[in-house]
Simulated assay, not measured.
Amino acid sequence: MKTLLPLLRPHYWPTWLALGTLKALEPLPYVVLAALGRGVGSLAARLPLSFVRIARTNIGICLPELSDQQRELLVKEHFKSLGVGIFETALSWWASKSRIAKLTQLEGVEHLRAALERGRGAILLSAHFTTLEIGGRVLCDGHPGSVNVMYRPTGNAVLERFLARNRSRQAKRAIPRDDVRTLITSLKANEPVWYAPDQAYRKKGAEMVPFFGIPAATNTATSRLARMTGAAVLPYFQERLPSGKYRMVIYPMLEDFPSDDPVADAKRFNHLIELQVRRTPEQYLWIHRRFKGLTPDYPDYYKRKPTIKTSG
């Protein structure tokens, strides 16, 4: 009980309220949850939030071929997708396997089986789309007790405790992003690891790798991990379909991977993400500051424009 007392401070009450609300709403029909999500997202897109500014900046950087009108429409659609993602996250955490199975289809399982037959584990390489949580849930449901999930710990203690416990219940292990030792142990035990290394990474081993033609601080550890363990690397992407269902695809393991150049390998994966983004542009996580530079030599794309005060 003592360990729970710090989590009951007023600072965390909004988190408890949000989790309780999602838990209470999860049993509603999917069409209702999706409509609620689109409504929440539409409202958020109209507010003066930094997330809206970041999304608008990222879309402008990555998709310069779009007109101003098209970009604004994509920003609005993206926030609707984010809203739906909130409620499908509730499904991912609490819905029964039968309910998840009715909403989703997982393709390419044979590719994962073939990879594991090699006996050296498999890295399921994914990326941060608004459908990320349900993609992880489907993968764990399809391979109960065998899939390891890597995740980025959050600074919110209540949410961190909840996520760690929930993901550990669904997956074999929930591995914090910096726990490389457990990751390697899992691969050497011939287990699959779900891994999404596409966010800005400015720690040791980071390199500036083009993403949509723009240098982005990138984690290049994937090819080194594959070389160290002999694990197969398979792209894994998911998308929300217009029908309201979800399509998850495990692609064949990458050939000639890893190469002798980790930067080239990271560039190759970034290109795969770009192709998926163009399939479902509203579903990519545009609110992340992907183009934060490693050093001050790179542009500050997210710097707020100074407010010009007028006299009189």
Rank of each mutant, 00 (worst) to 15 (best):
L234C: 09
R161A: 13
D256R: 10
I287Y: 01
A95V: 06
K102Q: 15
R56I: 06
G312A: 11
L125Q: 03
S223Q: 04
K204V: 14
A232I: 07
L183Y: 01
D265N: 07
H78N: 09
S92Q: 06
T280K: 13
D300C: 05
C140K: 01
Y12H: 10
I123P: 00
M248T: 03
R161T: 05
V263L: 04
R278S: 08
Y301H: 13
A90V: 12
P153M: 05
K204Q: 14
H78I: 03
A90H: 02
P215M: 01
S126R: 00
L8M: 01
H128S: 03
R152L: 08
A114E: 15
A206P: 04
P299K: 05
R137Q: 13
I287K: 03
K303H: 10
T182Q: 13
T295M: 02
S50N: 14
A264P: 05
I59C: 03
R177P: 02
E88W: 04
E160Q: 13
K97V: 11
R279C: 09
I287M: 13
A95L: 11
I61E: 01
R304T: 15
L294D: 04
K303A: 15
R173H: 15
P252F: 09
K188C: 04
P10D: 07
R152S: 09
E107S: 12
R99K: 13
G213C: 09
P197E: 08
A34K: 12
D300G: 01
T154R: 13
P64Y: 08
L17A: 14
Q70T: 06
Y246I: 06
N166K: 15
Q69E: 15
S126H: 07
A45H: 03
T310I: 13
L43P: 03
A189I: 09
P153N: 01
L4D: 04
P252A: 09
P14A: 09
L73E: 14
G155V: 12
R53C: 03
V209G: 04
I287W: 00
L82M: 11
L285Q: 08
P306T: 10
T57R: 05
A189W: 06
G135Q: 07
L19S: 01
A174T: 10
K267F: 07
A196L: 06
V32P: 04
L7I: 00
F211Q: 05
D256N: 14
A35H: 04
R177Y: 08
N190S: 11
S92N: 06
G205N: 05
A114D: 06
W194D: 04
N156W: 07
T3K: 10
I273R: 02
L272V: 12
H143T: 11
F269D: 00
L103E: 08
H271M: 12
L294H: 04
P296H: 10
N219L: 05
A34C: 12
S81W: 03
K23R: 15
K23S: 05
L139P: 00
P197F: 01
Y195N: 07
R177G: 06
R152G: 06
S168Q: 14
Q70C: 06
S81Q: 02
Y236H: 07
P306E: 15
S259Q: 13
T21H: 03
T57H: 05
K172S: 09
E274G: 02
Q238Y: 12
A127V: 10
V180F: 11
L285F: 12
V180H: 06
L234A: 11
V109H: 13
A34W: 05
F162L: 02
I250Y: 11
G108Q: 08
L91R: 00
R177K: 14
